[in-house]
Design a binder for these strands. Sequence first.
DNA 1: CAAGTGCCTTTATC
DNA 2: AGATAAAGGCACT
Length: 290
Amino acid sequence: MKILLPDSVIFNLDCTLCCGQTFRWEKRAVWWYGIVRDRVLRIRQTGNQLEFEGASEPFITTYFGLNDDLPRVYREIGKDEHIRTAIEAFRGLRILRQDPWECLVSFICASYKNIAAIRRMLHELSMKYGGQIRFEGYAFHAFPTIDTLAGATVEDLRKCDLGYRADYVSRTAKKIRETDYDFESLKKKGYSQAKEELLQFSGVGKKVADCVLLFSLGKLEAFPVDVWIKRAAMGHYSSRFSEEFIRRLQDEKGLSDTDYEKLNYFGRQYFGSFAVYAQEYLYACERSQG
DNA sequence: CAAGTGCCTTTATC
DNA sequence: AGATAAAGGCACT
């Protein structure tokens, strides 16, 4: 199936799939392969054209966030030279609307890991616990279901390189199964209510909750703060903070609760209602060069 | 080459 | 409330 994107729909498939919001897409030659529920989705972009198999057009539109008005987003967040440079470099990067369960597990696993390691963990998990799907002679694996991971032992989960995260995943899966938790209902709830509910799960703090709210539930109010955003703040927005605060950021290894709140508040105030798009471009920019 | 550092953090404990 | 240590393991320097 093919879609011709109008000029107003700025989109860059590579940027969108490589920027650390999703971890299981694979590029082989010109095609990207992803698993959506129990089907393999194949997609490629040539200029303004998207060509794909394995999903419907409405699904593609929703999943890749093609309804977000990027020209308007760029107008609103383009407050300074640095963010405008980042926008130019990653033009067409969009926020995905992924499956909430996979997204939740992905970001529980993501804590204190780099992207390569996260990809390995999720690949191991899927190989071991996800159903196999054959497509064009390749073997793909669906993401493990809630029941499967709830039934797995913590020791076996650890063998997928999850480390101490194995316990978080196990407890979260069990809790979801026991309470028959409905992810779909979260989409209808407000940001604060949805965040509060996500924070009840083991291994989910404010950063992980924000990532799930953002990358799977379409809550663009979220503004995840991590070490890369911290670096962007230190390197490009230091004049917006006191010297003392910047020194504290430089001295501490991680990010304290209060610093998270402060950077989160700054981002949302400064960049406005589409702040999270600024966050994603700053993140991508910071990771690519520093 | 060994040892240190860092990784899209959370939790337990003070 | 707010700071701090501990929690895999691997890649990189």
